[in-house]
């Protein structure tokens, strides 16, 4: 966003010009300095710079001046007192992670009532904003108004108003698995030997990302990293494996299990929730166990 990152040489020229003259530059100045450039072009650039706040426009003696605005001083606190400036500075330092009210209090040495007042006033002036953190639902953190909160605060794509959307994750998990499964079946149908089948059944997060985007099951835009973490849950479910290739890219592939489910969990005893309380005597015994009876009746 800032001027220094712009690639347009014309933009740089105008900014340099504006930096040189602290009083500001007029239309005539620009015309004089950039005589080889048509007016239509530089007005376009001026408009753009005005829009993103690199230049500001003011009037003096019925003449229009463009003046360079230091991006660091962008949010200059007009009409703010010293307390507000201090608090603003503290919040600014915390970046997009935000800062907790308690810590502002420690750092600024202001008392609670005064701090609350200052924060409220900054909030109404839209210099800062309060964001609820997902880590602790009652904890509010403050950060500058125009900042996008960090994913550690909002929880990233998986949170909506501090609630983890586990259904959404489950659906994505299933769809990712389905995609990998189809990939594998396609490879199987194409044939060409076990090695080829295996190599064809690998998919990257990018492939899955494309598939999920086209599927349109997600209202929000998911990043490739988001899908990497979803794919990792598929790996954890023992339905896929992940390998890293030479370029550091992750590849995913469905795998089969080695064994069918073990004999022990085919009985009720293997999965019995009260197995540790079961004995020869007492209320829970194998002789009258209703779980066993039900299983035998099946």
């Amino acid at each position: 966003m800032s001027a220094s990152t712009s690639t347009d040489p014309l933009e740089d020229k105008i900014i340099d010009l504006a930096k040189e003259r602290e009083k500001g530059i007029t239309n005539q100045d620009i015309q004089k300095e950039l005589s080889d450039i048509p007016a239509a072009d530089w007005t376009k650039v001026i408009n753009k710079l005005l829009k993103n706040g690199t230049l500001e426009l003011f009037k003096d003696n019925n003449e229009l001046f463009y003046r360079f605005k230091d991006p660091e001083k962008k949010g200059n606190l007009k009409g703010s007192d010293n307390e507000e400036k201090v608090v603003y500075k503290i919040i600014e330092e915390s970046g997009n992670k935000g800062i907790w009210i308690r810590e502002i209090r420690f750092k600024s040495n202001l008392n609670m009532t005064q701090l609350n007042k200052v924060l409220k006033s900054l909030e109404t002036k839209k210099f800062i904003k309060a964001v609820k953190s997902v880590a602790a639902s009652k904890k509010k953190v403050y950060m500058l108004y125009d900042l996008e909160p960090d994913s550690s605060v909002t929880g990233g794509a998986w949170y909506q108003d501090q609630d983890f959307e586990s259904e959404f994750v489950d659906i994505l998990n299933q769809q990712c698995h389905r995609f990998l499964q189809e990939r594998y079946e396609d490879a199987l149908n194409q044939g060409g030997g076990p090695l080829l089948i295996r190599n064809r059944s690998y998919a990257t997060a990018n492939d899955v990302h494309k598939f999920i985007s086209e599927l349109g099951i997600s209202k929000i835009v998911l990043s490739v990293e988001d899908l990497e973490s979803i794919l990792y849950t598929v790996v954890l479910d023992n339905k896929a494996e992940r390998i890293v290739n030479a370029n550091g890219l992750n590849f995913y592939r469905v795998i089969n299990r080695f064994l069918p489910s073990p004999g022990i969990v085919k009985t009720t005893c293997g999965i019995c929730p009260v197995a540790h309380r079961c004995g020869e005597t007492g209320q829970i015994t194998p002789k009258i166990c209703s779980y066993l009876t039900d299983w035998l009746k099946e």
Binding site: I264, T267, T285, C289
Partner: peptide, 19 residues
């Protein structure tokens, strides 16, 4: 621990059968 669980299940199965 799972082996213990196996023995327990085995015992239960045998007891149930005798019963």
């Amino acid at each position: 621990m799972v082996l213990e669980l196996c023995y327990k299940s085995l015992y239960n199965i045998l007891t149930r059968r005798n019963h």
